[in-house]
Amino acid sequence: MGHDINGLHHVGHIVQDMDQAMERYRRLGFTVTAPAYPVMPTTPGGPVEPFGVANAHVHFPRGFVELVAVIGDTGRMPGDARPIPLQVPEDKVPGLRAAIRATAANITSFLQRFQGVHIMIADTPDIDRVAARLTADGVSHGGVHDIQRPVETATGTRMEPARYLEVSDPDLPPGRVPEGRIGFAENTPAEAPQDRRHTDHPNGSTGLVECVLCVADTALPELERRYGSYFGRARHGRVTRFDRANVTVVAASALADLLPGERPAVLPAFVAYAVAVRDLSATEKLLRSNGIPVTRTGPEEMSVPTSAALGVAIIFRQDG
């Protein structure tokens, strides 16, 4: 179980203001792509309009961090935002708009809990195998979806196929579990690699290497059972680690040992994610020069607090 997982595909940071988030991430030393947002006509043959959610990305050679903001009634977008026309047969338009509205409603509900990370997607080379495994284990999910997603290459943005699956809690809206949105994604072999310009970060980060979930102490046994169904065998110690997915689960009473000073607003919550960096000392120097507070949490690790990173602690860890 869990041998069909290759670590993290991405985490999703839900933000109130995309302009503010992009500015903050750039101060943190990340290269951030221009945000994109979907547009499509409200009526057949009518003018297109933005709707749903806008997102921007921090890319690594494997995996990414996604910044997500709901498009409000005003439809206001950051100045460098790129519209992505959604082209589907006319008879499919109502269903697609309904699906995107449902996604936006979920994102809005996440933001009402707190600004921060609410999405964690694992990478898989075989999503059909994952779906069959989850079904056999009695895990509720929405099935495998085939989509087109924008991919930035050296020659511009193009739509490439991808496949994903979302885990569901029967007592919550579709695509929801208590901590947010959890799923699996498989990129097709035909997908073009990302433009390497977007994976060169001033802070020297080289990859997304961990996501940290904090839960109430009393909820820890059930959470470990549930995540065992998703991600396979865990490694127990001071915290519980699901190594194949690069997911760490920590009880609230032990969080201060892992991330000093952090207190999640609600539980359960994704409280942090970690990136590897080429030179931790150089990263620390850049962050401090940009006015970003850091705390050394070990000889080869430091963290930026949630107060400085829009609701999520970011761990920087020496690569290798």
Rank of each mutant, 00 (worst) to 15 (best):
P305M: 13
N203K: 02
E301G: 04
A313K: 10
I315Y: 00
L310Q: 14
A154W: 00
K285F: 00
A21M: 13
A265L: 10
S168D: 14
G95N: 06
P150A: 06
V144K: 10
G72Q: 03
P89I: 05
A122F: 00
L280Y: 03
P293A: 09
R278Q: 13
V304K: 08
L8W: 04
P260W: 01
I292Q: 11
V304Q: 07
V130E: 03
R113L: 01
P35R: 04
E186K: 13
A256G: 09
D4G: 11
D195C: 10
P61K: 01
A104Q: 09
R181D: 01
V151R: 14
T248V: 14
V177P: 05
R26E: 15
P41R: 12
E152R: 14
K285C: 05
Q20Y: 01
M1V: 08
V212D: 03
Q194D: 06
A252V: 07
R82W: 03
S253T: 15
Y25A: 15
E191D: 14
P202S: 12
M18R: 10
G183K: 03
T155M: 06
T42Y: 00
D200G: 07
G183H: 02
M40V: 04
R296I: 04
L258C: 03
A309V: 11
L213W: 02
I84S: 11
N246E: 07
R97T: 01
M22V: 15
P170F: 04
D171S: 15
A131M: 04
R317Q: 14
A162E: 03
D128Y: 12
G138V: 06
P41C: 12
L96D: 03
P221H: 06
V32D: 10
Q112S: 08
V249G: 09
T124G: 09
A272Q: 09
R158V: 09
R263A: 14
Q115F: 01
L28D: 09
A272Y: 10
P150H: 05
A34L: 02
E262D: 11
